[in-house]
Design a protein around this nucleic acid. Structure first.
Lengths: 211, 211
DNA sequence: AGAATATGTCATCATTTGAAGACATCAGGC
DNA sequence: GCCTGATGTCTTCAAATGATGACATATTCT
């Protein structure tokens, strides 16, 4: 950053991918030094992690580029800009599993394990902070509504509980709150707790809303 | 903002306080057009509200000044800067009541009513978002630890529950999460719900951690 | 009334950040 | 071998933001 660095002279910026994995396996079609699809994917993955960790505002395009090992200018080229990259990250968050009903045992277990493997996902951070009704907030909230609140509301309604929507929203908010607080490092034991320790507590918490 | 506005010519920037309330009552010592203590208080109050609403990063000194009706430059003069103003806001958050044990009925009721009257307070927003271990985060987290987590932990420990600290942290995180989500407007029914509707749900939620 | 201080107002600076563009370098077709 | 487009690298710009200082105006003291 501090060196003048004669314009466009860099060529030895470290091996992007070790050029092994010869032409044997037909899967990956020989590593290219320049691969738009790969760069796009690296940026998207870095964005998912960073947006989940810090939220939209506190994540800079330069951070994303650095983590991805890709020049931040390519964000504009491949996604259109930071906002569109965020929307792509939220879209990539879904599609794995069908919407989850938090009260079903295997669902909670699966969700927690998935979070452990892949991080919380970018939409969680957008729930807690109010803000301008930007596209970013709306997308993240719609995602959570569809994936967590609605299935739970249907479950509660089927159980005949009163105010199923409100209860589903409270349960989701509590769930997101606990997971966000855990990953934020605000509370020591919560952050250090294993998923297996946390799961029964969360299950009790959620079950309480069912009355 | 767009006019040149000859330097320092403004004098008619609206009446700060109607200069009535004659010398009769000895309470307020006649309104002054310039009152450092009043300006300081206005800034602090605006800061408490805005920090609670948007968190530290998304609140600008210009926003605070605008809401307070005070020039933002005075933040530096009276508090030293934005960070110190935040710390002052967190300190102002406490001092009202003794630390609250969320499981005691009147405590929960009192807390919710207080939030309804005075807003959530700046420290809540700092729990959910990770970030640099700045002074701001540490102060807000220490505040919550002392005010909410510790009393609850003691209560749970006295009840003989296992893992009292972890449970207290989970309960606090869930509590903060529900209130933050409510004020963020992320969930429609939760945002519109009356405190009276929310209170029994929160009570069930918290009681579940006691097992 | 007039000096001295307190308080308020405004312009401006340095930094950060998202974005855009100029240029360099690689890949594949002829 | 070379040309055209794709891909990557770097510089630069405009806006936002926290901070600072010069100056204006009010308040107080004598």
């Amino acid at each position: 950053m501090t060196e003048p660095a004669a314009a466009g002279a860099r060529r030895d910026a470290g091996p992007q991918v070790a050029p092994q994995a010869g032409p044997a396996s037909g899967g990956t079609p020989a590593p290219r030094r320049r691969d738009a699809a790969r760069s796009r994917e690296l940026l998207l993955q870095a964005a998912i992690e960073l947006f989940a960790d810090r939220g939209f505002d506190r994540t800079t395009t330069r951070d994303i580029g650095e983590r991805a090992g890709v020049d931040p200018a390519l964000i504009a080229r491949y996604f259109g800009g930071k906002v569109q990259l965020y929307l792509a990250a939220v879209r990539a968050e879904q599609g794995d599993q069908p919407p989850a009903d938090l009260l079903a045992e295997d669902r909670l277990h699966g969700l927690l394990n998935r979070f452990e493997r892949r991080g919380l996902g970018p939409s969680f951070a957008a729930v807690m902070l109010p803000g301008d009704n930007s596209e970013v907030q709306r997308a993240a909230r719609a995602h959570l509504q569809e994936r967590l609140v609605d299935p739970l509301r249907e479950r509660l309604a089927a159980d005949g509980v009163e105010r199923p929507r409100l209860r589903a929203e409270v349960a989701t908010a509590a769930f997101v709150g606990v997971l966000m607080a855990r990953s934020s490092g605000a509370f020591a034991e919560l952050t250090d707790a294993e998923t297996a320790e946390l799961e029964p507590l969360l299950r009790s918490l959620l079950a309480a809303l069912r009355d």
